[in-house]
Design a protein around this nucleic acid. Structure first.
Lengths: 228, 228
DNA sequence: TACACAAATATGTCTGCACATAATCCCGCC
DNA sequence: GGCGGGATTATGTGCAGACATATTTGTGTA
């Protein structure tokens, strides 16, 4: 065994996987473990905290540390910027703005952004392509009332890239789903309406102000991969 | 400001969002910051380490700490056990085993599990339902050569629940996609073939041994939500 | 000029100690 | 027996100092 808190983490994980400490069972206290490993309590604590963060252990004050009854599989998804995703595949990226108008959004968008009825938002649609083929069709509603004032035109660069570079980010949510291609999607990709598409919907907030609400339709057959 | 390393993390994050420290810029050293905050270096380090873990900062020895040029949005997905997902919605969960046979898997499954041609795997199909309605159609290939010997029958409980409770877990990957319902899917859900479905595919390994490869087809309209 | 090596430096980790905090446990009381 | 409240206890956080490690940077040499 090498050394350090990572070694302790590895050893604890090994014992859990070997069922030495079964699911739901309490493991020794930090004090007992640091006596066993011959290190400071902080070092054991670091290892156990890390295992708790990945869902392997559950810790509670006074109650002690126990093996998670139901090892939650947590996966971290790195949400890609489309340009980088395309270029990471070795394909050439291209971006084309299809429309940029002010209009009243449909009700679902208003609800998601928690805005009153009647307001007009900036409505952008654009197409990201990879190696000449349509890759993602983007349909975005942008709140013009966001701080920072001046909003650029997005003819050259994608709105997302402008946002990540210029807007402080607070919170948001993402949803994945499948949907049949609508008329717009079908036109953008040159496919039949109803073709199953992978859909990503994102809403972004900064301090109670809705920034943007975007729907990304990926090309047919797209797979989003994550590693555990 | 309250106190503790979380307060420091919040303050650093605030300055980044306020563009006090712009993207790509180096921020003061731990030493400088702990002088400013009037705390120990370990405390500042904890805050900065956490921000680095979430992708806001990038840290390198000697080079120092700088604001991530491209703030990677990392989202953590807690992969739900289907039973819990259903019960969490307040619906009654039901599980039904549709088939359980040994057979040779199709080539894509063999490739994903890195198994030689000709081997037979246990092939399970089952249906999870929520509130009496079909919820997920599961198509699973299970390696019978996994250690632990005896494999139970899955008539009563889902294979996934048996696995998480009995198999040590090492690594795996997940992919999300959209696909039109095949004949099996259509029959399971009582829908037309070709209806867009949200598909999750998972492969699980333990120490170079493939355990299982599963395809989950979710009911039409299903949305997988994550929080950033 | 180009390259190898050494000094400088910021982060990474560990120790040992202290106190804070939240549960649980247990004892006494009704 | 049931219940409330304080003692107990394991984890959470903090501090000051030390050494380890990875890079960078500057220097000297071929």
């Amino acid at each position: 065994m090498s050394r350090g808190w990572e070694a302790i983490r590895a050893d604890v994980l090994r014992r859990i996987q070997a069922r030495e400490w079964g699911p739901g069972a309490a493991i020794p206290t930090e004090e007992a473990l640091c006596r066993e490993f011959g290190c400071a309590r902080a070092t054991v604590g670091r290892a156990l905290r890390d295992l708790a963060a990945t869902g392997v252990l559950e810790r509670r004050r006074k109650a002690g540390t126990r093996v998670a009854l139901q090892p939650v599989r947590r996966a971290t998804l790195e949400i890609p910027v489309i340009r980088q995703e395309v270029e990471g595949r070795g394909q050439t990226y291209a971006y084309r703005l299809l429309a940029d108008v002010m209009e009243q959004p449909p009700l679902p968008v208003l609800l998601r952004l928690r805005l009153p009825a009647g307001v007009a938002l900036r409505h952008l649609t654009c197409l990201h392509s990879a190696g000449g083929q349509p890759f993602v069709y983007e349909d975005r509603w942008l709140n013009p009332a966001v701080p920072g004032g001046q909003q650029p035109d997005f003819a050259a660069h994608g709105a997302n890239e402008w946002l990540v570079a210029n807007m402080p980010y607070d919170a948001g949510d993402i949803a994945f789903s499948a949907a049949g291609a609508g008329a717009d999607d079908a036109a953008a990709f040159g496919i039949d309406p109803g073709t199953p598409l992978f859909i990503v919907e994102r809403t972004t907030w900064t301090a109670d102000t809705a920034i943007t609400c975007v729907r990304l339709a990926y090309m047919p057959g797209y797979r989003l991969r994550m590693t555990l």
